[in-house]
Design a binder for these strands. Structure first.
Lengths: 175, 175
DNA sequence: GTCTATACGCGGATAGAC
DNA sequence: GTCTATCCGCGTATAGAC
């Protein structure tokens, strides 16, 4: 992994700010300061606020797709992988996780972000349906994962589910 | 029910705008126009943007509490009631539903909204735990409901779950 | 490539008429 | 109580130096 480009550093800063302050309060000034560049410098890399959003969304999508690929290749299976990584802590979370949370927070306001989020969710649901065979079981697992994301958006964890991933899947599968 | 006060009309307009455009784009001008008053008129009733937010949050909380009380009294039980009403369509939704969606969208940015949302969620979870006995089953049902809300935030329905409410609860309960 | 300085528009809030 | 007019601050974007 080469050292992160200036572009990536800026996107990292933007992502972090969105995750812990919310989209509305994030200004170009704040992003620039957090990334260690001036506003002018930021606007050299991303011509506008919208371009910055697109940058975040593109990267979120890439990270998501890579993560889904990893999950598909994992021994534990997609469902287990998804549920397990959904209960991560947003603050200490992985790059994918933080990008995803940022994307969802942005989705409350930006149609583009909502669209990208739907795409990502659909990918996971499809993979889980494929894996579990039973569409309803897949839908339950996917929805539980989505619920966990919503909770982290509102600053709530899902402690009860962390240790119950196996059992949740087992119950979802019963017919 | 007396005809809605001007205050309520304004809150209705604000709620609707947040639900279908997102918090970031909603200006006092837009709210005033939608409510059929001038910006000055709006600011007579709510002294600031923040006061307007508080108004929405207070009402959302009231509506939520009343809804929870209804659910507790319902023959079908809290879990079934919660899941069933969670799959409502946001556009055509009830007042509680729209207020809740608005609150969650606001939660992405406003700590106060996040706090209120957590409170509301906790109330439902508690009621379901009480009802089902099994904490994990309650947690699963609650999380599925939350996931359904997240989906409607990003403009996605949960068609597969609409007709499967009974079955979802049945599976969640299995131990 | 990155910075400083500045122009510009918009949204929030106030003052005061009616 | 509700309106119009106006002010002010802030955030985006541009121009141009280095």
């Amino acid at each position: 992994m080469p050292r992160p480009s200036q572009r990536d550093r800026i996107l990292d800063a933007y992502t972090d700010l969105v995750v812990d302050a919310g989209p509305e309060t994030v200004t170009l000034d704040a992003v620039a300061a957090a990334a260690g560049v001036s506003k002018g410098g930021l606007l050299y890399h991303f011509g506008s606020r919208e371009a910055l959003l697109d940058g975040l969304l593109d990267r979120a999508r890439e990270l998501n797709d890579a993560d889904l690929a990893t999950a598909r290749a994992a021994d534990e299976g997609v469902s287990r992988y998804y549920l397990r990584t959904s209960v991560d802590d947003p603050a200490a979370g992985s790059a994918v996780y933080r990008a995803t949370v940022a994307m969802i927070k942005l989705a409350a306001t930006e149609p583009r972000a909502a669209e990208t989020t739907r795409r990502c969710m659909a990918g996971w649901r499809a993979a889980m349906t494929e894996e579990l065979g039973d569409p309803l079981a897949a839908d339950i697992v996917a929805t539980v994962g989505d619920g966990i994301y919503l909770r982290s958006i509102v600053g709530d964890g899902s402690p009860g589910l962390v240790d119950a991933v196996e059992e949740v899947i087992r119950r979802a599968e019963r017919s």
